[in-house]
Amino acid sequence: MQESLLRPTLFLLFFYMNLLFHASALSLAPFLPQRFEGVMAVDLSAMRKLYRDGALKAATVAPAPMENGAWVLMVVHTDGTQDYMTVARSDRQKIYKSLESVHADAKRVGFTEVTTQVGALQVA
């Protein structure tokens, strides 16, 4: 009886220790829930088509979750739903390292104006 309980316990202990050991090398940002509930994922090509069809009304640049100094591009549909820009042919959120690059993609979609959100300001 004791031996049958010990095996799963040892396995779980080994599993969690291994996970903790390798966690420093993992970037979990692509797997975390996004900032907005019900947000869909769209790549540049699909976003261009939505813009041409008149389905998009606004673009927002926001700080990327779990990434320091990085940005994401979010768009709002005419029906109020939201999408985020993804890496081509993927559901993984595209993370931009500069405001210039995210603004360039917004311009490629067709937007002439974007709103930029700023995170909490830190005072030194």
Rank of each mutant, 00 (worst) to 15 (best):
Q34D: 12
Q117H: 11
I95S: 10
P65K: 14
H77C: 11
M66P: 03
T81M: 07
T115Q: 13
L99N: 02
E100P: 03
A46E: 15
E37K: 13
M74F: 08
V39S: 09
F21V: 09
Q93T: 13
R48K: 15
A55D: 03
A25V: 00
E100S: 10
P30F: 03
A124W: 04
Q2P: 10
T9V: 14
E67R: 08
A64N: 13
R35F: 04
V42M: 11
D83S: 15
F21M: 14
V76D: 04
G80D: 06
V118S: 14
A41P: 02
T81L: 07
R89E: 15
R52W: 06
M66E: 09
D79F: 01
A59P: 03
D83T: 08
E113V: 05
L26Y: 07
G38C: 00
H77T: 05
Q2I: 04
M85N: 07
F31P: 00
D79E: 10
V75H: 01
S24G: 13
T60L: 13
L6D: 08
D53T: 08
P8R: 01
F36M: 07
S98V: 06
P8C: 04
Q34F: 05
P8A: 05
A29I: 01
K97C: 06
Q117T: 06
V72S: 10
S98K: 06
Q2Y: 05
Q93E: 03
A104F: 01
L26P: 00
H103E: 15
V39C: 08
S101H: 11
L6A: 08
F111G: 01
L32W: 01
M47I: 01
V75P: 02
Q82L: 06
A59F: 00
D53S: 14
L13K: 06
L50G: 02
H77N: 09
M85L: 15
F36V: 10
Y84K: 04
Q122Y: 10
D43K: 07
D53A: 14
H103I: 10
V114K: 00
V61L: 00
R52K: 15
G38H: 00
